[in-house]
Design a protein around this nucleic acid. Sequence first.
RNA 1: GUCCCCUUCGUCUAGAGGCCUAGGACAACUCCCUUUCACGGAGUAGACACGAGUUCGAAUCUCGUAGGGGACGCCA
Length: 493
Amino acid sequence: MSNSEVRVRFAPSPTGYLHVGGARTALYNYLFAKRNGGKFILRIEDTDEARSTEEFIRMQMDDLKWLGLDWDEGPEWKTLKDSGAYGPYRQSQRLDIYKKYADQLMDSGRAYYCFLTDPEIEIQRQAAMKSGRPPQVNSPYRNWPKEKALEKMAKGDKAVVRFKVKDEEKRDYHLPDLVRSDVRFPSDMVGDFVLLRASGMPVYNFCCAVDDALMKISHVFRAEDHLSNTLRQMMIYDELGFKQPQFGHISLILGSDRQKLSKRHGAASCHEYKVNGYLPEALNNFIALLGWSSPNAQEILTMKEMAEQFHYDRLNSAAAVFDPQKLMWVNSQHLRALPNEELWKLVEPFLNEAGLTLPSDTDWRMKALEVYKTGMNTLKDAVEAFRPLSESPIELSPEAQETLTWPSTRIVVEAWRKGVEQTGSDYLSEEQFNKLQDQIKDEQNVKGKHLFMPIRVAVIGKPHGTELKMLVPLLHKRTLVARAENVLSQIKG
RNA sequence: GUCCCCUUCGUCUAGAGGCCUAGGACAACUCCCUUUCACGGAGUAGACACGAGUUCGAAUCUCGUAGGGGACGCCA
């Protein structure tokens, strides 16, 4: 194993946005490849004609790109053109390959045409369950000669191709698993399964086995729900004489109710996290920790650090519950670690989308970010943080109403408005602000919260928030005056 | 129903027979910093599913029970 090349793959079926569970699988494979100087391959499993679309392929790719999980081989981003020596990388374009192997199995007597209909299969299922047997298909066609089947098909009858599971010799299949304790499957655990649909389109277990072998995949890290599929794939490997990759079945990600994570638990797709202002490195960091731990107990890791530290021996075999609160914390940590210039670039689209008009000079932006950075958990939080800094009028928050009832408020705000108006420059400096505040304190004989809360209400419409000496220098004089006047007009009596 | 997997604080986890009166992180709570809010800092509370066995010694090994999850498709 050490002298053969590490080749891992991520093989999504394009039926929507990239799911966080899928993202984690992709991430582990990616990290494993990076750690071992191997290749990370993207293969598109689009054999479900009803649900797979090119649009979905693009969406999946966009999400992978956003996460920074670049693939070495696979369809190219945007063009979808194959890149790599083992293509095509879309299963829908490998149909002739699967056909060839299906024929081979047919000729060796390990596959057969089956004409069972859905209702017939359902009756078998019910009967099997009732008598305590696993619901397996028992096809009357499994020993038909090929010619007889072909004749029937010539008359227009549709048939699937089934793999003939050997029932004469019952044996245990042994699966050495990189993540959990080794698994033993009894060979009668599965019934004859479908290889090719009536339409000729191959089915997952078949193409997966064929492709992993042909694409020289060395390790397969995939979710646990594929564990029982592995037996079918092992049978195919055996029969076709393929070398089996090493498997590692990762635990599932669950929602708060301990069911498989899905849309009903809230955001389950990477795209939603992107739109909601999460950083890709934070999402990677968080999902990596759902089932893997850093050897030195690090909680906040960059992609580079994860790639340096990743090993499957630290993969956890137990399922993990997705905790949005912790994700938010992880996000806030990554966000704070970002240089302001970079952070601004990321925040700007959210501010624009919210329609905020803010000063364009870099100095102002950096200062403003410095002020609000520690209060932000997501990029989107910038919108509410920056809203009071835009020139548009502000609304008074309900909690500001109490401040308005204080007798001193009118006096303070009036003095504030006058003071600001008399300032020579467009913006007050921190020193100018301090001076003005002291002046009001002395002249009006007001101090403590009766002094700064009214001023803050006059500035941002809320009694709580950032330190005034940081905040005030970010606002244009005329905005400050306009807001002070607005507040004065709302004080009764 | 059948088979397979899993089981340490509410959540993510550390832990590979003595280092464990079980460590860390998120969340919760308390205090400090702060003329507010956050940030930050210091603390408190909180777990080895249960029962047998192996052993001088078990969170760690074995078996059983219970619970959870997954699979059983012409979905992947």
